[in-house]
Design a binder for these strands. Structure first.
Lengths: 195, 195
DNA sequence: GTCTATAGTAAGATAGAC
DNA sequence: GTCTATCTTACTATAGAC
């Protein structure tokens, strides 16, 4: 990847973020050096600082962008949707969205303790907002008499943990297709909150 | 913690492991220095090398000991136990054992990528053995007609992910007692594999 | 068994040339 | 916008005195 001098601001920025994403996911934030990231991109370490004030900002922006994408893409309830239909949509969405972005998801779960305090608060707020979507579905389902859930907050934690766990074993082209995985998990989620 | 010279081999070893456990769990393996560990114990960095050949071994032994304890403590099936009773015992055991050791559990999940390859294989074998215990219960329950689970391997992953997730939010002295948490999760697990 | 001291390396970030 | 060079700091691990 040796390069001579030149100006490539329009492509270097995204390439830096992509390299940081891959390296942070594989080796962990603390174990990756700015020199490694620069090496992947094909520039010298000093050049990174034209694009990020420091290593911490690189991590924070990867996590923030991922969670903002997650919230923007999460299914919205249409009038007339039953809680059961909304729960199925949430379940399938969560599995599909997360398995499409294993590196972003891994970082968002593993690197929370490497965030500066103010950055941590912002990321936590985004995560809490997402969990709130599922809690809302469960509470509505309980009110409607469709679900039996003693504690909707805990049930939301339990369902999200179960679904996010797919990323620890699922591989494209493996024994099960994504559709089959969605259906297996939806079967368990549906029963776990059933009356 | 300033200390003068002296011999304390019988207590220094455990104190080093305890300090490494706490620091690795809080800041991550790669972000913790041998000097930090030594500082917590009250010795100089060089003294650590009387107890461990290197930093990697410190991590590996913490993870190995934790998983060996887990396997040794996991409930064994007695003749005549129904699959349902065995699944309840497993569920309650997993929650109780893990919430009693949040730092060990955290490290065992978060620091896998910092293990040397041969150490990784040994840790993975222990984890697989534990997952196999739950798979056995589920398969027996399906054969007996007590459970309806399309894919026992995936169902085992799903249940373990759900249960391990308790550690991300549970705190001693919080809104719910451990008994209440066990019962809430057992209710969901039981239903999720029900016929 | 612990200390002090240090070898040897690598980190994050910056300065100034081009 | 990128390079080379460097500042400053910190790291793992070891050597030898006590």
């Amino acid at each position: 990847m040796a390069r001579t001098q030149g100006s490539h601001s329009d492509i270097t920025g995204p390439r830096i973020r992509a390299a940081a994403l891959r390296l942070f996911a594989r080796h962990g934030f603390a174990a990756v050096s700015m020199r490694q990231i620069a090496g992947e991109v094909g520039v010298q370490a000093g050049a990174l600082y034209n694009y990020t004030p420091d290593k911490q900002s690189l991590l924070f922006e990867l996590m923030r962008d991922h969670l903002q994408d997650l919230l923007a893409a999460a299914p919205k309830a249409a009038p007339g949707d039953t809680p059961l239909a909304r729960l199925e949509a949430f379940t399938r969405f969560h599995i599909r969205f997360n398995t499409e972005r294993p590196e972003e998801v891994f970082i968002a779960y593993m690197e929370l303790r490497n965030l500066a305090p103010e950055n941590f608060r912002e990321i936590e707020a985004l995560r809490t907002a997402y969990e709130g979507r599922l809690q809302r579905i469960l509470r509505d389902g309980v009110e409607a008499g469709d679900f039996r859930v003693c504690d909707p907050q805990i049930a939301a934690y339990a369902v999200i943990a179960m679904l996010t766990g797919v990323n620890t074993w699922f591989r494209q082209g493996g024994r099960l297709s994504l559709d089959e995985v969605e259906t297996l998990y939806w079967d368990m989620v549906r029963k776990s909150v059933a009356s």
